[in-house]
Nucleic acid binder design. Sequence first.
DNA 1: TTGATGCGTAGGATAATTCCTACGTATAGT
DNA 2: ACTATACGTAGGAATTATCCTACGCATCAA
Lengths: 109, 109
Amino acid sequence: MSADHLFAALASPARRELLRMLRDEGAQPAGRLAERFDMSRPSVSEHLKVLKDAGLVAETRKGRERHYRLEAAPLMELRDWLTPYERFWRERLTALDALLDDMEDQDAR
Amino acid sequence: MSADHLFAALASPARRELLRMLRDEGAQPAGRLAERFDMSRPSVSEHLKVLKDAGLVAETRKGRERHYRLEAAPLMELRDWLTPYERFWRERLTALDALLDDMEDQDAR
DNA sequence: TTGATGCGTAGGATAATTCCTACGTATAGT
DNA sequence: ACTATACGTAGGAATTATCCTACGCATCAA
């Protein structure tokens, strides 16, 4: 629920890259993620922990492996957070449209 | 353009609150924003600077005042960043639907 | 021109983040 | 039982973030 954790988790490029990998390549064990990362395996583990605390990732243990999978629900909260700004954005656009219309009126004279 | 600056700017609750104020109350001078903030005025100034560097805010100088206004365009980039995750989210939902359908089939027997 | 107002910048203390290596724990295979 | 594998955690160094007070620079008002 805490938006703070969510935004903080997304602030790191490394964590966003992890999310992207899980999104495009599906659930994976931590080690496989770390292999293609320019970062030590333990550091990747910590990033995964941050993502887990933010609810962006969930783990299922399979033997000694831990598969991580993307949990997109918090990102939909982010979309909700964004909504009132979209409205603002559109207002700005329509204001711009109005301005352009005025300029056309000027030209028409 | 750099998504890093954008995400980093949004990581701070104080900065998100500033954005909300500008969104809900319109453009304002820095001092008026700081008045209702549990934070020193110079600190608010720095937060505004971070927001400006991220393109989320623009200033227009009016005499000795500086009016800050929200620039929502970068947030629309954020929405674009979000899009491929929405697809993932829907896939999960349809997978859940399929599962529920299966369970109904089971019950129907 | 003088004094007050609106804001930003400088410098610094403290806390948080980010990365590492070393180590511990649990499972799998032999 | 013993070794190798897949991880996480501990502890610490280096960087960055976050806040403050003190100060400087314009602008306005008289």
